[in-house]
Design a protein around this nucleic acid. Sequence first.
DNA 1: CAGCTGACAAAGA
DNA 2: ATCTTTGCCAGCT
Length: 116
Amino acid sequence: MSKFTENKSPDFFFLVYEIVRCIPRGRVSSYGAIAKAIGSKASRQVGMAMNFSHGVQPPVPAHRVVNRIGVLTGKHHFSDPGAMQRQLEEEGIRVVNDKVQNFEQVFWDPLKEINL
DNA sequence: CAGCTGACAAAGA
DNA sequence: ATCTTTGCCAGCT
């Protein structure tokens, strides 16, 4: 286990940021996968961390984090609701009706990619 | 100080 | 297959 797992403290947000920043361009991840990567099941707090990521440095690609079915649940929390979908499409991810198409193809699993 | 909320997910019925 | 319940834990009221 790396610097991730083995943690369940206020660093939760920080760990979430680390994982999210590792998401490659053109890929997306889910709250649960990120939470699991940290060693927790608090997928809700992952969303909270995203909400807190406004002004965080380096910037966190929160637009690449969606729920487990690929729906852009948090697009309303962005400066502009449409920005999330626009950025995803710009990265090659097709989004229709606030839902990521080919989700299983663009899905990026931190546990599988980071801790190898 | 105590309870409720929430960018979710997995298990039970 | 859908609906309901529980866990999760920081932040707010």
